[in-house]
């Protein structure tokens, strides 16, 4: 076979070649149809009085103008005071949740506890996870009265579910080697947990506690709307009574403090996960 012959055959093959057809993606089509249909169905059937929608940007602009147009520094101490209360509620609430969820997490981890304990504890942790803090708060206000205590317990109870579930997952993801070693050396179950599991999982669990604290600050900032303490009360009342300037000040304080604490807590979390720098140990 000559060189030109080979070339001719190759050219022919190239000419006849067709691009393979893309496989038809049924999954993508189904998802698209479901999303579009869901959106249209919901927007057409909901009783939202859409004719008010065009007014929204104007109204919002108006309100922001009133809020931030003539801020009064005299409102600042009040706002900072209530925000500190919100931070306190979030912190103590997170502490309660950490204390409650810590033993539950071990009971819910498959590699530490038995089947029955895992199933029962997981269901127990699912319930507070699905109920929003505000619902806990409104149920606790008749018990503890208006004020920060109801908010604190509400935050604590509802975070217990999330922290417990995540901690259990962290425990399940730990390395089996140390556990086997402790088992082989004759360690009892509590000893196993204390010396083989806890050293591995504590950094991640503590980092998650901190993350949950950040989430809880957002939650506790609004608990006051139903009267459970913190800056939410100030926000709700100043908006209801159209005292826009103090609402604006409260809003600024909420946003700034939230962002600041996020940044600080994020830095601490990264430091905990990373461990001390080698240079610091010398």
């Amino acid at each position: 076979m000559s060189g030109t012959e080979t070339q001719r055959v190759a050219d022919e093959r190239f000419r006849d070649a067709v691009r393979p057809e893309k496989p038809f993606n049924w999954f993508r089509l189904t998802v698209t149809v479901a999303v579009v249909a869901g959106f249209l169905g919901a927007s057409l059937s909901v009783d939202a009085r859409w004719e008010r929608l065009p007014e929204v940007p104007g109204e919002l602009w108006n309100i922001f103008g009133l809020m931030f147009g003539d801020l009064d520094l005299a409102d600042l101490p009040d706002a900072l005071d209530s925000m500190w209360e919100s931070v306190g509620i979030a912190w103590i609430g997170t502490m309660i949740a950490a204390a409650l969820s810590f033993p539950l997490a071990f009971l819910a981890a498959r590699n530490v506890s038995g089947r029955v304990s895992v199933v029962v504890t997981r269901q127990l942790l699912n319930i507070p996870r699905a109920i929003p803090e505000i619902i806990f708060a409104v149920a606790l206000i008749p018990i503890f009265g208006l004020g920060p205590l109801a908010g604190t317990v509400a935050i604590g109870l509802s975070s217990t579910g999330t922290i417990g579930k995540l901690s259990a997952e962290i425990i399940e993801g730990c390395d089996h080697g140390p556990m086997e070693a402790a088992d082989a050396a004759g360690g009892s179950k509590p000893q196993l947990v204390r010396w083989a599991v806890m050293p591995q999982v504590m950094p991640e669990i503590i980092a998650f506690w901190l993350y949950r604290f950040e989430v809880n600050i957002r939650a506790s900032a609004v608990l006051g709307v139903v009267g459970a303490g913190g800056i939410g009360t100030m926000l709700q009342q100043s908006i209801e009574f159209r005292q826009w300037a103090s609402a604006g000040m409260a809003l600024i304080v909420v946003v700034l403090v939230t962002i600041l604490i996020d940044m600080a807590s994020g830095a601490i979390r990264r430091r905990i996960i990373r461990g001390p720098r080698p240079a610091a140990q010398t």
Partner: peptide, 25 residues
């Protein structure tokens, strides 16, 4: 992200009065 959902709702209720619309927004 720093403004919690309920706070958004408060703002929109103030802007367009109560109903599903402020909730959706």
């Amino acid at each position: 992200r720093a403004i919690p959902d309920l706070l958004w709702a408060l703002l929109f209720v103030a802007a367009v009065s109560i109903g599903a619309l402020p909730g959706i927004l």
